[in-house]
Design a protein around this nucleic acid. Structure first.
Length: 361
DNA sequence: ATGCCCCTACTCCCGTAGGG
DNA sequence: CCCTACGGGAGTAGGGGCAT
């Protein structure tokens, strides 16, 4: 069986000048993928007998409840002939007699079974209606979010916690990845939006910058840079740099700056995850340029130092598809929450680090 | 390919008349 | 008293034609 929902028009009651309270969604029920034989029958019947709608079921249930066609008509605000027509249609659709008409309306054996099952169907429908209402009001829904590090671990939880408390029925799925991966996922429709840096290509997406993720140099205490008052990119020459992968936007930005201001050569160790860098610095493997938020406070045995000639902000924001269609109320509310949360999160200040002001757009 | 307009067929409901 | 059948009015869906 399949259930097809159609938006039934709501005609103005010509006789009484009011809308029919019963004329909302109709659930039509039919057979899954009709066979050729069934299709012929359907054509022969010209639409009769292959479906039933929710109103006729409600009419039937009302008759059973009140024990009379007339009283059911009054309850449902139909004329009595319409009630008769509904039952005829229902019985015709099902191919069984549901009610015995005599002085008193009685259920047949089939009618009793149908009454029982129809009750469940109506309850399910009421549940569906309620779920749809919640979706419309933004109280429920599913939003697939892609987030890059460190925002995923260090910023998002604080922003999402109050949102989830306010909208407990909204399901959020979070995919963590780098900007390149998140953009691909967005294009392929695997996520609805992403929090990431500016993608290499803007084709097919629109980027809304929100803040700059500041970075600084993390060095072991025993390194000579730890005691240096001012550090510039040229001071990194000859040092062992701990780097993330080549597609990491932080590494790209750092390498571009090093080429421009510091010159070659540099040598480093590649570590795939940003969060692991600080532990390798702690173990005296080398030095690393890391987002400040990930090393607040710095691990024991390390020192965080600003690099004066490094534009420290990696612009981060919301990435959406160019042909973006509204996600529904829940999605829109989440976007709004993320936007406000990321714009308003307090900048991480570290003693001894002369941060530039976070650049807001 | 998309949007708009017009026409036709269909659906839904009503009131009325008649039968059990 | 209750149910059924019938005719008619009003609204909607869908197809066809046309313009962009």
């Amino acid at each position: 069986m399949f259930i097809r929902t159609d938006m039934k028009s709501v005609p103005v009651n010509r006789r009484h000048g009011e809308s029919y309270p019963h004329a909302f969604f109709i659930i039509r029920i039919g057979k899954v993928v009709p066979t050729q034989e069934e299709m012929k029958l359907v054509q022969q019947k010209k639409g009769k007998g292959d479906r039933m709608d929710l109103r006729t079921i409600k009419t039937f249930q009302t008759i059973v409840k009140l024990g009379s066609f007339q009283r059911a008509a009054e309850e449902l605000k139909y004329v009595q002939s319409t009630i008769t027509m509904h039952i005829q249609k229902l019985e015709s659709d099902l191919g069984v007699k549901l009610l015995e008409r005599s002085k008193k309306v009685c259920l047949t054996e089939a009618g009793r079974l149908f009454h029982e099952k129809a009750d469940l169907l109506l309850k399910d429908y009421e549940y569906l209606q309620s779920a749809m209402t919640e979706w419309i009001q933004g109280e429920a829904g599913v939003v697939r979010l892609g987030v890059m590090e460190p925002a995923a671990s260090y910023r998002l939880p604080k922003i999402l916690a109050p949102f989830m408390e306010r909208y407990p029925k909204v399901q959020i799925s979070i995919q963590i990845g780098n900007t390149y991966v998140l953009r691909e996922m967005l294009i392929e429709g695997k996520i609805d939006l992403a929090i990431c840096s500016v993608p290499d290509t803007g084709l097919g997406t629109t980027f809304e910058p929100l803040f700059a993720e500041k970075v600084a140099l993390l060095v072991p205490k025993q390194d000579d840079l730890a005691g240096k008052h001012e550090i510039y990119l040229k001071d990194l020459r000859g040092k062992r740099l701990l780097l993330t992968t080549t597609i990491c936007p932080y590494r790209k930005k750092l390498e571009a700056a090093l080429l421009e201001k510091g010159g070659s050569p540099y040598f480093g160790i590649e570590i795939s995850t940003m969060s692991a860098l600080k532990y390798y610095v702690q173990a005296n493997f080398g030095i690393a340029v890391v987002p400040i938020i990930t090393v607040t406070p710095p691990p024991e045995g390390t020192v965080l130092k600003p690099i004066h000639d490094l534009d420290t902000g990696l612009v981060t924001g919301i990435l959406l598809k160019s042909d973006y269609k509204a996600l529904g109320s829940a999605g829109e509310k989440l976007i709004s929450t993320l936007r406000d949360g990321l714009l308003n999160q307090k900048c991480d200040q570290i003693t001894g680090v002369q941060n530039k002001e976070v650049q807001n757009f």
